[in-house]
Design a protein around this nucleic acid. Structure first.
Length: 523
RNA sequence: CGCGGGGUGGAGCAGUGGUAGCUCGUUGGGCUCAUAACCCAAAGGUCGGGGGUUCGAAUCCCCCCCCCGCCA
């Protein structure tokens, strides 16, 4: 566990990636979970003052793209340009703070992939061999016997694939079984959460098999993809192309300064379907190229929608942009991070979203801010009073705030984001309780207790401020609104270190109270 | 078949040997600063089934049932 202590040096770098997406259709809520989780951690590290690089992108060199483009009667380039707009729009709507965006069709990415491939070649890990399987011409893909459905292509029920053999390039993954076993032994945090580790260790125990890294360009077919170095009759197949994005994004191989600043990646976030490729193939490829391995692969489960599998073909999907228009980005971010544990699959339910919105965001958090700001306005003409002498209740509130922050931090650092929110909510709840205990509305009626009222109002404002600060990675716009209503400036890089202690700011005048999350009435 | 994960109050989950916890929901009470919000309390579980180890098991062992994932 990375115990970083209470503060951080601002000279540290933090590199985080998400999987790159196939732009063969528009993004849906399932894509969003991973981006939001990664964004929370990226924002958290910026809040610590780390030099953070958060990279995402698009996987455009696959045959899926050619098919989608053809189906829509446009060129592949026009198609991916159009899809890029859709993806960027979705991530922007969800407030995903991406630093670097990579498309695999970019020349710099061709350059990086070629370099990585050549390094593996020089290391003797690439060889040519026969590849055989059931070939579907529509997919331009091979399937195993088991993958076929009644002898037909799983994606094209009308097509009976042919048994084909071709010469392919292979990567000698088997060379890396032992060294990867050792890596897993020496780095128990390499896979997070650790529920996925036994599966990888099982694969290692049974021995790794080499995998195909190229496809022949067939006659009459567009050479879509990155040519294999030294053999343009082949293009790279998936892994040396897609995974290399993580290197391209930070300047590999030509910008050594930038690359050395960020590599190896601190966290690479992926969906559970590609666990093996990121936990086994990818490290082996990096070892072959003489590059250090990422520190952590973070695996998340899948989302269902109202209990059903998300599928465009059955119309069971939600457009994140429409969702944001209806509820706002922060409620969706909060809901997904609070309700879905990365360790297991989660469900997106409209009823539960509204529930979380009203109960957690509206009642607990929004109402807390509202009552604090209202009372400061009503009893102290909008000026936050000086803190005064702390009694037992204030010391207790301060201690809960400290624990909430330290627990929250520790949990974010091990990617336990739902529990981190629970830890932060301890402070929100405690501050509400504190107000009940002090009853400032009664203190206000007795001029002799003005000092107690001052202390109470200051303490409640401070508890609310610290909760807002810790929430900033999860609900960034809301955190700024909290600061704004408390009369403070918007949250900045490094603020968790600078302002994350009880009493770290000088308050001034609060703004007019305004509900953060107006209640959503349901039928 | 094999490997792995899981089955805990109405719902969702935590809990790996020592009186079963959390959030929501339900019920009752309090408060009135606040977004019909907030606070307090109560009811509700023979921890999938059976057997075993132990002074003592949700927690360890064996068998069975059910759900999910992996097999390149």
């Amino acid at each position: 566990m990375p115990q970083k202590g209470p503060a951080r040096l601002s000279t540290q770098s933090f590199y985080i990636t998400t999987a790159i997406d196939y732009p063969n259709g528009e993004p849906h809520i399932g894509h969003s979970l991973e981006k939001i989780a990664a964004d929370v951690v990226a924002r958290y590290h910026r809040l610590l003052g780390d030099d953070t690089a958060f990279c995402m992108g698009l996987d455009e060199n696959s045959q899926h793209i050619l098919r989608s483009a053809a189906a829509n009667d446009v060129s592949p380039k026009a198609w991916t340009d159009r899809m890029e707009v859709a993806f960027l729009k979705a991530w922007d709507a969800l407030d995903i703070s991406v630093d670097s965006w990579t498309r695999t069709t970019e020349p710099r990415h061709f350059r990086a992939s070629t370099e990585l491939f050549e390094r593996a070649q020089r290391n003797g890990d690439i060889y040519k061999s026969a590849y055989a399987g059931w070939y579907c011409p529509n997919c331009n893909n091979y399937y195993t016997e088991a993958e076929l459905v009644d002898g037909r292509c799983p994606n094209h029920p009308t097509i009976e694939p042919d048994w084909l053999e071709e010469e392919n390039y292979f990567f000698a993954l088997s060379n890396y079984t032992e060294i990867l076993k050792e890596h897993f032994r020496a780095n128990p945090d390499f896979i997070t959460p650790d529920v996925w580790r036994p599966e990888m260790e099982g694969l290692l125990a049974s021995g790794l098999k080499d995998f195909s890294v190229s496809r022949q360009v067939r006659e009459g077919q567009e050479a879509w993809g990155i040519p294999v170095p030294g053999d343009p009759s082949h293009v790279m197949y998936v892994w040396f192309d897609a995974l290399t994005t993580y290197l391209t994004a930070i300047g590999f191989p030509d910008d050594a300064e930038r690359f050395d600043t960020y590599w190896p990646a601190d966290s690479q976030v992926i969906g559970k379907d590609i666990t093996r490729f990121h936990c086994l193939y990818w490290p082996a490829m990096l070892l072959s190229a003489g590059l250090p391995l990422p520190r952590r692969i973070v695996v998340h489960g899948f989302m269902t929608l109202e209990g059903k599998r998300i599928s465009k073909t059955t119309g069971n999907s939600i457009d994140p942009v429409e969702l944001v228009e209806e509820f706002g980005a922060d409620p969706i971010r909060y809901y997904l991070m609070r309700e879905v544990s990365l360790a297991s699959d989660g469900d997106f339910s409209r009823v539960n979203l509204i529930h979380r919105y009203n109960n957690d965001l509206g009642n607990d958090l929004g109402n807390l801010l509202n009552r604090v700001v209202s009372m400061i306005g009503r009893y102290r003409q909008g000026t936050v009073p000086a803190r005064g002498e702390a009694g037992e209740l204030e010391r207790d509130l301060e201690s809960v705030a400290g624990e909430s922050i330290s627990h929250g931090r520790r949990l974010i650092e091990v990617w336990d984001l739902d529990d981190a929110l629970t830890a932060i909510w301890q402070l929100v709840r405690r501050t509400n309780q504190y107000l009940e205990e002090r009853q400032p509305w009664k203190l206000a009626k007795d001029p002799e207790r003005a000092a107690e009222l001052d202390t109470t109002l200051w303490s409640a404002a401070e508890g609310t401020r610290l909760a807002g600060l810790m929430l900033a990675p999860f609900v960034p716009a809301t955190a700024d609104r909290i600061m704004g209503q408390l009369g403070l400036t918007a949250i900045e890089h490094g603020d968790l270190v600078k302002l994350g202690q009880w009493g770290a700011v000088e308050f001034g005048s609060v703004a007019a109270p305004e509900p953060l999350f107006p209640r959503i009435e349901v039928e």
